[in-house]
Design a protein around this nucleic acid. Structure first.
Lengths: 236, 236
DNA sequence: CGGCTACTTGACATCTATCAACCGGGGTGG
DNA sequence: CCACCCCGGTTGATAGATGTCAAGTAGCCG
């Protein structure tokens, strides 16, 4: 097998910008790729198990999380199509991963995948950069988890989530929330009741409208009232 | 400048194991290295500024942190000698860094440093791995910040800190705490008063003794009573 | 000796969790 | 087709943990 051109590149790993593979790379990698489908709530990988596969989400949404022995759960991030479910560099899965709804992913054996990366410097670099984004996101979230109030956490979540899914289509005032209240709570270190009450409060304040599929942000489309409440994080 | 052998490796980045450079690498890198000293409380780098230097701490302890506009601070990690103060891969500094006491560091211009990494695959790999550890640590901490009680946070901190500095010398029952209560509080998402009260409580429970330089862990040296209170995080 | 800083301790306030009841939609089975 | 149940979500009452504010102590350095 001859590795093709280097040109543009590759899969991303938790990053904002979506990049594409060249046809040659596509071909190389597809030699060992498996397409896999998951039912809703399927556990894809389990924290601590040996990472022999690399998964790249293609459809649906997944959550990466860690749990304590007594069941307390912290969602570490949400994965969108294009995201890796774990770093290709890690020998063991650092988080458990669960599909929120139905989902599909490309699965690669990790060994060959790493070989591929190492022989395509540009791709390797991109993967490293993507991995870096993960770390940054984690640290920003630490600030929120450790120092934010419930409302700040929630508002920041909505604003970020909107920006993140906004990469498909323009930023809209309609923000879909495909995940459950429990997922949101476990992401923000809160309880479902608190989430519910925050929704009620923000709705009372005419900042959002809660609809079955998600939220309607009120105020100007390009600068919803919600933004006024945003937690003042320096970075991003 | 000719880059030397590849052999063993390099600096680590927030990792446990301390690795060494070969003489050749040492030489290469030292060509551009600056040794820098800092007074206590010096701000070494500021979050968001362009990262033109790579710093490797050689003496002392530093804190990596993020702050909100109103001053709320979250310490992201403590850096020990051997640790990098920021990822060499990042174009901007992702966190601010401050020396706790007097400290010294090696400073490298980032460009040449990266060139060096890319031409020494083994070192590149090690740096990636180290970077991965950072991400893991951040995520474990997220679990604690989001879901742990004050006591769990504190105990986990002490246990991890002991293990971390334990790499110099055997694990002792005497745990030095060179950082201030404020630092501990900002690391755990608590207040100094809560830290104080936890110390008092654990002392009352005959689990620790608070001494000026740090803590004395009571109970068997190899399995202090403190461990019984440890938060049940699956990973490590 | 005085004043500074880091830390401790106490009284009280507040936020968020907890517990419990309730609501509503969707699917299932009679 | 209707009744029921189950699940996810909401709402209310209450409790508990941690933050806040304030006073007080101890060590350190000039």
């Amino acid at each position: 097998m001859v590795y093709g051109s280097l040109g543009q590149s590759l899969f991303l790993f938790g990053s904002r910008k979506q990049l594409v593979m060249t046809a040659a790379e596509q071909h190389d990698v597809s030699l060992v790729r498996q397409r896999i489908s998951f039912f809703a709530k399927t556990v894809v990988v389990i924290e601590g198990e040996p990472a022999d596969s690399v998964y790249k989400l293609t459809h649906g949404i997944a959550v990466l999380y860690k749990i304590m022995a007594d069941g307390r759960r912290q969602i570490v991030s949400f994965a969108l199509p294009g995201d890796f479910l774990a770093s290709p560099f890690s020998d063991i899965y650092p988080c458990s991963v669960e599909a929120i709804g139905e989902a599909r992913a490309d699965q690669f054996p990790r060994g060959p995948f790493l070989d591929f990366l190492w022989s395509h410097r540009e791709n390797l670099w991109q993967t490293i950069e993507a991995s870096l984004q993960e770390t940054n996101a984690a640290r920003d979230h630490m600030l929120l988890l450790g120092r934010g109030t419930a409302e700040e956490k929630f508002v920041e979540f909505i604003v970020n989530w909107r920006a993140r899914i906004g990469r498909t289509g323009a930023l809209a005032s309609l923000v879909p929330l495909p995940m459950s209240r429990l997922d949101i709570a476990d992401y923000l270190g809160l309880t479902i009741e608190t989430i519910s009450r925050l929704l009620a409060k923000l709705e009372r304040d005419k900042v959002i409208r809660v609809i079955p599929e998600g939220l309607q942000l009120l105020g100007p489309v390009d600068r919803p009232l919600l933004f006024e409440r945003r937690c003042e994080v320096l970075s991003v």
